[in-house]
Amino acid sequence: MIIENSELILSVRNLAAEVDGTPILKGLNLDIKAGEIHAIMGPNGSGKSTFSKVLAGHPVYTVTGGEVLYKGQNLLELEPEDRARSGVFLAFQYPLEIPGVSNLDFLRVAYNSKRQHEGLEELDAFDFDDLVRERLDVVKMDPAFLDRSVNEGFSGGEKKRNEILQMALLAPTLAILDETDSGLDIDALKIVANGVNQLAKPDNATLLITHYQRLLDYIVPDFVHVMAEGRILTTGGKELAQELEARGYDWVREEDMAEVAAR
């Protein structure tokens, strides 16, 4: 929801980043305020996923220019774990499998590292168990998944639900969902979308990275941005997503090129 004069959560200015010397992000600008849901759409290779990983601090990407302020603080100077603890959450496009580590233990360690950061006492195994069982409902997950190794042998949909379960526990201020909808059947998509909707609050913000307009039927964004060649080319409301679905991305590029040429 768009709330007037709400807090600026994320402010990205002229962000440039590269991987192995290849520039991917080339001057990206974006403001996200509390309460808002933003969607970034764009063709493959436009830099959407790179943007999400740069925000989370993936070491493979090097920021070569610009700045990212998260609640007024320089996000780029924080270690990935400190970003997470201060409320930035990335739901992975391809969540990793961690054999031998039970999902429950993993969730508890993650949850307690955030509690510790906030100066709160860590929850013991019993209290945490109660909490996690209650949150399972957000993504309609079978409690049996808690005893299994993290994501090991999970289906695509189960992995994505597990990401949203982590999000439900960590209650981030800025949730970035990197193609959380890709590879999901319609039932799983509804469950995941429903989970995200439940977690969106006036004091937090959500950034959806997606390839398909379909997700936006279930999570209605306040803003839709179109990204190509490492920049945001155009921004609109939710109707922009429908237009993209109908017309593809090329017209955005052409308009952008015309605009650049006119300058």
């Binding site: 601090g57 774990e81 961690i98 031998g100 580590v101 360690v109 993650a110």
Partner: peptide
């Protein structure tokens, strides 16, 4: 990185992975 993005520092993340491997 996955574990770091959930709030574990690099050292704890590595330890947890080794623990999982052994467990």
């Amino acid at each position: 990185f996955y574990l770091q993005s959930r709030g574990l520092d690099r050292k704890s993340a590595g330890d947890l992975l080794v623990e999982g491997f052994a467990a």
